[in-house]
Amino acid sequence: MKERLHQLQQEALEKIEQASDLKALNDVRIAYLGKKGPITEVLRGMGSLSPEERPIMGALANEVRQAIQTALEAKQAKLEQEEVEKKLAAETIDVTLPGRPIRRGNPHPLTRVIEEIEDLFIGMGYTIAEGPEVEKDYYNFEALNLPKGHPARDMQDSFYITEEILLRTHTSPVQARTMEKHQGRGPVKIICPGKVYRRDNDDATHSHQFTQIEGLVVDENIRMSDLKGTLREFARKMFGEDRDIRFRPSFFPFTEPSVEVDVSCFNCGGHGCNVCKGTGWIEILGAGMVHPNVLEMAGFDSKKYTGFAFGMGPERIAMLKYGIDDIRHFYQNDIRFLQQFNRV
């Protein structure tokens, strides 16, 4: 009997070893450990054994069972693992095939520039003021120290609708309107982005419609040095921390003193290149101290209040920043142009 058990164990372990899949293994289990299996049969024959031998045989039988069981489990785990691996291998995909495209549009490059500038000035405590594009001659010119017949009106040929109404030629009327709303009390701290219109033929460098951003700060004790500091801050945030700015005297009817503002070339760092035409500087802004007539017309006491104003063209900034060569691109909206501005 003892031999029989050892033999069974031997046989079973061999068959387990040979089983190549889970079904075959299960067959082995049923064959050896099932109720009708040989071990059960052996145990049934225990009645013929002496009482001394019975427990010994019983223990042996259990040992054999245990050994088979353990082998079965081990083999099962191994086969299962193999099965999984086989299945996964069959599931292999080609990871180089394209992903499901996510359709994405993006802001117009001008919006990109305008919002960047807006955010920059919001960070410095400015709010954004907007105003009508169809404007009264008064706000567009007269309130800005450009009375009728003023020679400087020559500088901007305008689209008039009636004698008193025109398409605004700059966003400055928003400044006049905002100051008027403040009823002579500061501080005023705004930037005004928006569309403006001039009677120009559209070509690579001119557009009858374009955008502008102007800034205005009016308070007691605003100094021209504050204008310089503010614009330097702007230039550094917009074009890089090592930028510098310079003022060149200029003339605008609504500011006195007036300056043109150059930023050191962000392409060559000021050594001179084709972007800055060899000068190391790029003109990007017009600015100045708000003319006392403008303050007074808007209801501010020019003895008590001073202010600065500046204006710039997002088209020009975008053209410089992205190397765009033709202003008409902004208004043709060629998708192949627009989608170039689709990332950080």
């Binding site: 310089k228 500091g229 101290m289």
Partner: peptide, 30 residues
């Protein structure tokens, strides 16, 4: 202001310091 401009331009704008407005600062916001 015209005289201020004459003085400023002949004094030289490059000699103008760069400062920031000294005022109660209010947060800007859309």
């Amino acid at each position: 202001e015209d005289i201020i401009e004459e003085v400023a331009r002949l004094y030289g704008y490059d000699r103008l310091p760069a400062t920031l407005p000294v005022a109660e600062s209010k947060p800007g916001k859309l």
